[in-house]
Nucleic acid binder design. Structure first.
Length: 259
DNA sequence: CGTAATGTTTGAAT
DNA sequence: TATTCAAACATTAC
């Protein structure tokens, strides 16, 4: 379930488990998952994961030998750290550690990727990753929005502009901002753009909190009601669905009128 | 059985 | 040249 908040959770999970464990062996039985050639991953033998950082929906893990292991979770990627011979179903990449534990990287839909690179900055440039959604300033955000003609939802989901926001939380940010997802960026005034900017941080941090402590989202959130015909959490009618910016979007036309 | 699913990349259209 | 859009990718679940 990986947008920025989920990847923050995976970072916490990896930090609490696989970090600083000596790697005994690497298994990569599914070539499709590998963003870099399989042979490169064998370099990890004897190495250790040193520290991790999240950028957008990517998790960068620096190793003691100065390489960087990069995880991207696609739509269904997940970690599982435990002992035992039998890997979980859909395991396509495994780090085996000297302590007999393993970090399994699973992904039923095989859209996840794992990379091993020498220079994380080169990777970032190659993949054209924009500023992290939690690090952009209001000024930068307004600058990035200037002159854009596409939908606001498409703008929020474009990883080259701002990275970390996907289908679910772009809908939530726009619901909280009372902006229809199909509204063109250049049809929004500064006040509306600033409200969206504030809600990016607000929503992402709130969702991250709920991922970290398994708490539920506020009553006023639309995320739990992503179903056409569901009642708007503000009591303003029914949730509608439409394909916007290539993805299924849920919104309330009464709260979020089209411009 | 058909359709949609939390994402990114590619190539075409604007 | 830059931006936007739709389709493709692989597989599962409803």
């Amino acid at each position: 379930m990986p947008e920025l908040p989920e990847v923050s959770y995976f970072k916490k999970y990896l930090d609490a488990t696989a970090l600083h464990q000596k790697i005994r062996k690497v298994s990569a039985p599914e070539e499709l998952i590998l963003g870099t050639k399989e042979v490169a991953f064998q370099q990890l033998q004897g190495d250790q994961l040193k520290e991790s950082r999240r950028l957008g929906k990517y998790l960068f893990v620096a190793t003691e030998n100065r390489n960087t292991l990069i995880f991207h979770f696609g739509m269904t990627g997940n970690f599982e750290y435990r002992q035992g011979e039998e890997p979980p179903k859909y395991t396509y990449f495994t780090l085996h550690f000297e302590n007999d534990f393993q970090l399994f990287f699973t992904c039923p839909r095989k859209l996840a990727r794992v990379y091993l690179v020498e220079d994380a900055e080169v990777f970032r440039k190659e993949h054209e990753l924009g500023q992290d959604a939690l690090e952009a300033s209001e000024e930068e955000f307004l600058e990035l929005a200037d002159g854009r003609r596409g939908s606001m939802k498409g703008f929020l989901m474009n990883q080259k502009i701002i990275s970390g926001i996907g289908n679910l939380y772009s809908d939530e940010i726009l619901f909280q901002s009372r902006i229809h997802p199909a509204t063109a960026v250049n049809d929004l005034n500064q006040k509306e753009l600033k409200a969206i900017f504030r809600n990016i941080e607000k929503v992402l941090l709130r969702v991250t909190k709920s991922k970290m402590d398994s708490s539920s989202l506020p009553q006023s959130y639309i995320t739990p009601y992503r179903k056409a015909g569901a009642a708007c959490p503000r009591g303003n009618g029914k949730i509608e669905k439409a394909k916007i910016a290539g993805r299924t979007s849920y919104f309330c036309v009464n709260c979020q009128p089209a411009k």
